[in-house]
């Protein structure tokens, strides 16, 4: 069984922010929210690196564990999805998320934060796959169409890889062997192998 993952090759990412832009466009993500971001570390120094980050769809996902109203759930592909009809905007998933993925409308601060929104691995939500209701709440369901997330498929340098973890891991390893260096899979230990210490 495939287990989907995201992998960002930091030696290739050029911080063009195309992934963030195309995601907002594909899913018509509302104002003030962003499902995918690009973070630059050591900005302006020789070892500067850019990494595209969104929800990593963790193994033993902490957001699902802390959600008080069972809004968040995981599928057998490893994709973590959310149900906007039950979300109460408590913010627990944001505190439990190692990657700052859950987003809230900036507008409603008082009493509630409004309903949470996050990366769906382009797999929609609990509504019928491909339906208009699903699109309005969660954006397009590309997985049900047999496609991969738009952010990875649009990446011009193929820095951002998405899909079956073994397959993209193999692509990345071959690439590292071929060019002779590689910074490794950022965030994978926290996201996918929580029980492996150090």
């Amino acid at each position: 069984m495939a287990r989907v993952k995201f992998l960002c090759d930091t030696d290739r990412c050029i911080e063009c922010n195309a992934c963030a832009t195309v995601c907002k466009n594909e899913h018509e993500v509302p104002w003030g929210m962003v499902r995918r971001r690009v973070v630059t570390i050591n900005d302006g120094e020789p070892d500067e690196k850019s990494i595209a980050i969104s929800c990593m769809h963790c193994t033993d996902a902490p957001c699902v564990a802390v959600c008080p109203v069972s809004t968040l759930y995981q599928t057998d592909l490893g994709i973590v999805l959310h149900d906007k009809d039950t979300c109460i905007g408590c913010g627990y998933c944001f505190y439990a998320c190692p990657f700052g993925a859950p987003q809230y409308p900036r507008a409603s601060l008082f009493g509630s934060r409004g309903v949470m929104d996050k990366c769906t691995f382009c797999a929609g939500g609990p509504e019928e796959n491909g339906s208009e209701a699903e699109f309005r709440k969660y954006g397009r369901n590309r997985i049900a169409e047999g496609k991969l997330p738009i952010c990875a498929e649009v990446c011009s340098t193929r820095a951002l890889l998405a899909g079956d973890g073994d397959t993209i891991g193999e692509i990345y390893r071959e690439r590292v062997i071929h060019r002779g260096y590689g910074a490794g899979a950022w965030g994978w230990k926290t996201a996918y192998y929580p029980e492996n210490e150090t």
Binding site: R106, A107, G111
Partner: peptide, 19 residues
């Protein structure tokens, strides 16, 4: 009070002329 404040903040940030 909370409802009024929430609605007014939402209206403010969804008003395109302010955004």
């Amino acid at each position: 009070v909370l409802e009024f404040a929430t609605i007014s903040v939402i209206e403010k940030s969804y008003n395109p002329s302010l955004n």
